[in-house]
Design a protein around this nucleic acid. Structure first.
Lengths: 188, 188
DNA sequence: CACTTGGTATACCGATCGGTATAATACCCC
DNA sequence: GGGGTATTATACCGATCGGTATACCAAGTG
C-alpha cells in the first residue's frame, strides 16, 4: 500500500472512532507513519481528506442504491432489494458505515456534516423516489414519500447500528423483519 | 438570569449547532459575557459543563418517560403515551433534543458520547421493559425486545428529526402514524 | 470592625490545532 | 548524465485548545 492509501485507511479508523472534530491531522499522519506535509500533499486540507474518504466509499454505495431503487411495480421486492444493498454494504465496510451514521446525525453546522450532506441527500432522494412511484399503485401513500423514505432508511440504520454494537445478527431473517415491519405500517 | 444559567444556555446552543468538539470553552464564555475562570468556577471542566447540561435537561425527560412506560396490559395505549412524551418534550426543548440526537449517534469513543451514554441507556431500558412485559400478552414478540425498543425509539426520532428540519408538523396525526406504523409490524 | 465566602477578571500555562515555506530526496524520461 | 516531476521531511507559523495561579471585590456574618 502506498502512503496515500494508508493515510485514508488510518483517517477512516480515527474518524469513525472519535469523530471528525475529535481527531487531529497530526495524529492521523503519525498513525500512518508519515508527516503532516505528506498528508497535505495528497489531500490539501483536513476537509479534503474527509471529502476524499466520502468520495471513495460512498460512490459505489450510491451506485448500488440507485440500481436497487428502480421501481418496477413491486414495492415489497424493491424494498427488499434496497435493504439487501444497505445490509451488505454495512457488512462490507463496517468502519465506514459507523462514520457515516455519526455524520448523518451530526449538528448541521459542523464541518463534517457540510461535507457529507450532499452525497447523503442523493441516497435519500433515490429512496424517496421509490415511494413516489409506488404511490401510483398505492393511492393512500400519496403525500407521505418523505416520511416513508426517512422511516425506511431509519429502520435499516437502526438494525445496522445494533449490529455494529454486536447486539444482533445482520442476516436475512432480520432483513425480512425490517421490510415487513415497515411495510405493514404503510398501507394503513 | 445569573451567569451560571446564561453559560448553560449559550453552551447548549453552541453544542447543538456545531457539536461538543466543535466548540471551544473560550467561545462559550464569550457568548455568555463572562471569562473562562467564571465558567470553570461553576462547572470545573468542559466535560462538567456538558454533564450539567445533560443532568438538568434529561432528568425531567427521563421521569416522564418512566411514567409513560408503565405497562398495564394495553400495548397500543402505552406506545401512544410514550410517543406523546417524546414529541412533547422535543417541542418543549428543541435545541436540547438536537444535541441529544447528535450524541446518540456520535462515535463511541468521543467524549460527548461517554457523558451521555449512561443516561440515554436508562431510557432505552425503560422502553425495552415495555416490550418485555407485553411479551406476556403477545407471545410472538418474545426475544425481540431489544430490536423493538430500538426500532420504536428510532421511528420517533426520525419524525422528530424531520420536524426539527421543518419538513413535517409534529402533531397528533403524525404521532398516530408512527404508533400505527410500528405496531402493525410487531405482530407479524 | 474583622473575616469569610462566592464570584469574577487579568494574565498566563504547555500543548495542540490546521496549515506551510523550504529543501532534500527519489524516480522517470531524455 | 541532465532535467523535470513527484514525494517526503525539517522546521516553523499564528491561533486556539483546555485549564489555572493569583488577586480583587462585593456581600454576608460574627
Amino acid at each position: 500500500m502506498d502512503n496515500k492509501t494508508i493515510i485514508l485507511s488510518r483517517a477512516l479508523e480515527a474518524f469513525a472512532a472519535r469523530g471528525y472534530d475529535g481527531v487531529g491531522v497530526q495524529e492521523i499522519a503519525a498513525a500512518a507513519g508519515v508527516t503532516k506535509p505528506t498528508l497535505y500533499h495528497y489531500f490539501g486540507s483536513k476537509q479534503g481528506l474527509l471529502t476524499a474518504l466520502m468520495d471513495i466509499y460512498l460512490e459505489p454505495f450510491n451506485q448500488q442504491v440507485a440500481a436497487a431503487a428502480e421501481y418496477r411495480g413491486d414495492l415489497p421486492a424493491t424494498l427488499t432489494a434496497l435493504a439487501r444493498v444497505y445490509f451488505s454494504y454495512a457488512k462490507e465496510q463496517p468502519v465506514f458505515y459507523r462514520m457515516l451514521l455519526a455524520m448523518s446525525y451530526a449538528p448541521h453546522n459542523s464541518e463534517a456534516r457540510l461535507v457529507s450532506a450532499t452525497q447523503q441527500s442523493q441516497q435519500y432522494h433515490l429512496v424517496e423516489a421509490v415511494f413516489f412511484s409506488a404511490a401510483r399503485d398505492h393511492g393512500n401513500m400519496r403525500g407521505r414519500h418523505q416520511l416513508f423514505a426517512a422511516n425506511f432508511i431509519g429502520l435499516m440504520n437502526t438494525s445496522i447500528s445494533l449490529w455494529l454494537n454486536g447486539s444482533v445478527k445482520l442476516d436475512d431473517t432480520l432483513l425480512q423483519q425490517v421490510v415487513r415491519q415497515f411495510q405493514y405500517g404503510i398501507y394503513s
